[in-house]
Nucleic acid binder design. Sequence first.
RNA 1: GCCCGAGUGGCGGAACUGGUAUACGCGCACGACUUAAAAUCGUGUCUCGUAAGGGAUGUGGGUUCGAUUCCCACCUCGGGCACCA
Length: 832
Amino acid sequence: MKMKNYDHTKIEKKWQKEWDKNEVYKTQNKGKKMYVLDMFPYPSGVGLHVGHPRGYIGSDVYTRMKRMEGFNVLHPMGYDAFGLPAEQYALQHKIHPRKAVEVNVKTFERQLSIMGISYDWTRKVNTTDPKYYKWTQWIFLQIFNSWYDKSKNKARPILELESLFEKSGNIKVNAVCDFDTKIFTAKEWCLFSKIEKQNVLMKYRLAYEGHSEVNWCEEMGTVLANDEIVNDTNGNPVSERGGFPVVKKSMRQWFMRITAYANRLLAGLDGLEWSDHIKEIQKNWIGKSEGSEIEFRIKNYELGIKIFTTRADTIFGATYVVLAPEQPLVKNLESRITNLDEVNKYINSIKNKTDEDRTKSDKEKTGVELKGIKAINPANGEEVSVWIADYVLATYGTGAVMAVPAHDERDYEFANKYDLPIKNVVNNNLDSKNPYLDDGILINSDNFSGMTSEEARVKITEFVSGKIVTKYKMRDAIFARQRYWGEPIPLKHNSEGIITQLKEKDLPLELPNVKSYESTGTGESPLAGVKSWVKEGYETNTMPGWAGSSWYFLRYMDPQNSKAFASKKAIDYWKDVDVYVGGQEHATGHLLYSRFWNNFLFDLGHVPTREPFKKLRNNVVNPDDIVNNYGADTLRIYEMFMGPFEQSLPWSTESIIGSRRFIDRVYRLQSKIVDKKSSIDVEKIIHKTLKKVTEDIEDFAFNTAVSSMMILVNELEKSESIGKKDFKILLQMLAPFAPHITEEIWIDLGEKKSIHKSIWPKWDKNKIVDELLKIAVQVNGKVRTEIMISKDMTDEEIKEMATKDKNVEVWIEGKEIKRIIYVPNRIVNIVV
RNA sequence: GCCCGAGUGGCGGAACUGGUAUACGCGCACGACUUAAAAUCGUGUCUCGUAAGGGAUGUGGGUUCGAUUCCCACCUCGGGCACCA
C-alpha cells in the first residue's frame, strides 16, 4: 500500500479545509433554483454512522454538476433526532437522549465530510431543537384547527365549520368525519354544552383525539405502529427493536385524519417522477376500490344493515349477511338476539386475540349466528340469516358484508363449515378451476339474467337503492407516543375535560427535564410523572417520530426564521424539492406523511405546491471505510461505477482497485498536457464524452458516465499530447465524481478559483460529428461485413456500396435482392 | 393467493425510441520492464470449429428484413399487499 501516485489523504484534507473556509458550497438566495435533498438520518441503535454512502454520493454528483451549470443549488443536511431509536440508544447507554444525539451527530458529520459531500452546513436543522419543533407544534395546531370539506375538496379552518353548524346544523355539511357522527340541527347545536360541542368538533378535526385498539408493548411502555412489529420465531408478535412481546390494548390516542387525503395522495402520484415501484407500494397502501353500499333491512326492526361490496352483480346469490364482531349495530340488536350468551362469548374470545392471530389466512374461519335476527335481501326479498365472524373486518367498508358463497372463496369456506345455502348466479366457465372468476354472464337473477357482470353492477345497485362509493384500505395515522423523547403536543386538558390550545406566542412548549425518562410501565408517558407538567394540564403524550420529518424540507429553505416556519419569500422561491434521494423503506411512512402535510399546508395557502418531492431516487445500503486505504475520490467513483444507482450491490473490496487505477491514470495524464490545441481526434472524443456524461448525470446513470470517462482516458493514453484546454474539460466533467483530485490538478494548472465554482463546459456540436463512419452490413439479418461511409454520401450510394462489397457479393450471388433497408448511421440490411 | 419488477460471460454490469449483444471495470492467462517482488504497461479472454462458418441474452412459441428490447405461455429470483368483500 505504499508509493501511490498521489497522496490522497493529504490532498483531500487540504481541499476540504479550503472549501470550508471559502464557503464554496454556500447557497445563495437568487438565480435559477435547484433543490437537491438527501433524506436526513436518525440515530440508530449502534450510534449514528454513515452506513450507506451511495445515496449521499449520487446526489452530491448531481448537485455538483447542477452547481457548475449555474443553478443556485440548495443541498442541505440535518438530523431527525427525536423518536424511539435515539431513546432506546440513550436507555441502553444510560445517558440523556440529548447527549446521545450530540455524540452521534459528531461522528456522522465527520464521516460525511471525509467523503467530500458538498453540503451547505449553515442550513443544518435538528428536529429536537426547540426553535425547530416550535414549528412542528405550530403545524400540528393548524391541522388540529382544520376540517376537510369534501365539496371544495380541501381543508378549511374549523371556525368556518362552527359557523356552518350555527346556520344549519351538520345536515348539509359535506365533510370527512367519523363513521358514527350523528345528525343535528342548528338549534340542537346551539343547545349543546361546551363539552358536547368539543366532542362533535373532534369528529371533524384533521388531528383528533380518539380511542383505539393499539399494539401495546409492555417492556418498552409504548404503543407501536404495525410496521414496528415483527414476528418472532414462534410466530408471536414482538417489537422490531428489542424483540419484546406486543399485545392489543384500547387507549386514548391522537390521530391524523390522513384518510381525508386518500384520493389526493393517490391522484398526486401521477405527476411525480418517482420509480413505478414506490408508486405501486403507495397505491397498494392507499388501496382504493370502487363498489356499492347497499342496505339489507332487518325484519321487524327500524335499522338496516349497510354492507359494502364490489360485486353488486352477485347480490341474487347473497344467502346470508356477516357483521364484524365489533360492528356497533351488534350492540343495538342485543335485546332481540336469542342466543346472546353464545354471541358474547364469541366476541370476548376475539378480543384476546392479536391482529396477527386474527388475520392469519390459513386459519379456519369461525363465527356465530345472531339467532332471532333476519335480514331481507333487497334484490329478491328473501329472508337470510345474520352472522358475526372475525373474517369480516370492522375497520374496512361498513364492517358488514353480504355473503355470496358461490362467488367468493371466503364466503364459500364459511358456508360449507356452517352448512349455509350456496346459490350460483354468474355463469362462469363451470369446468374452470376457479369458480370465483371476476366476470361472467348473470343467471338466476330475474330481469338481470343475461347481462354481463360489468353492466349489472351499476344497474343492480340502482335497483336496490344502493349507491356507488369508493373505499380505501388506508387508516388514519396514530399521532401519539407514550414516551419522553418527542415533541410535546401543545394542548391542555382541564378538570372538566375541556381542551385548550397554546397560543402561537407561547410556542414552543418545551420538553421539561425529567429525572427518569424511562418507561413508566403503566402506559402513561414519563411526562405524567412531572408534577408541574400535569398541574398545568399539559398533554402527556408526545408526537411520534414522523412529526418532525414530515416538513423539514421546508425548514431548510429558511432555517433561522423565528417568525414563521419559513418566510413566504423563501418558500415562493424554493417551492419544492427538485430531486429527493433516500431509501425506499420509507415508501409507506415518511414519504406518505410528508405528502399529506404538504397537501394540507397547500390547502391553507402556506406552501405554493401540492406535492413536495418532484423527483425521487432511492438509495440502497452499502458498507464503507475505504476512504483510508484508497481515498474518498476512489470510494465515490467506485460507488457510482459499480452499477445502476437504484440497485443494491454486494460490496467487493477486490474490484474497487479499478476505480483507484482510473484516478491514477488521470493524474499521470498530466505529463501529456501541452499548451496548444489537441488533435482533432482528441477534441472529438472529449466532446462526445462530455455530451454523454452531462446527459447521464441528468438521468442518474452515473455508472455509464464513469464508464465513458474511462474509455476517454484509455484513448487519451494512446495519444501523443493533450491540449490544456481539453484536459480542463476532462477535469470539469470528473469534478462531481472526484472533487479533490480534480481540484488539485486544476489549481496546479494555474486556475485561481475553485473548479467547483467553474462553469460546466458545453459540448460543441460540430466536434461530435464524424466525417467517416463504420457501419455494419447484414444479409438477411446476419452481419457479413463492415463498410466505411462518409457523412455526405446519399442513402442510394451507401446501399450500392454495400451490395458491391466483396464479402457481401458471396452471399447474394445469383439471388434476387428483394429489399435493402438502411438505418442511417447504423446498418444496411440486404434481404434476398 | 393477488399486484409489481428482474433474469445477459467466472463476477459487477453495458446496449439510445426494435438496428453490429457482451461496452467499461474486476478476475484470470501470457508477455515487457526488474536481480527479484510490488506497481505499471501490452496482448488475449461467451461457446463449438484447424478454418470457412455455426450457436448463445432463464425456457418454449409468435410478430418483424432484423428481437436482450414488442406479444403469449411457462420456470426461477427479488419486492409489495394480504380474510380489504
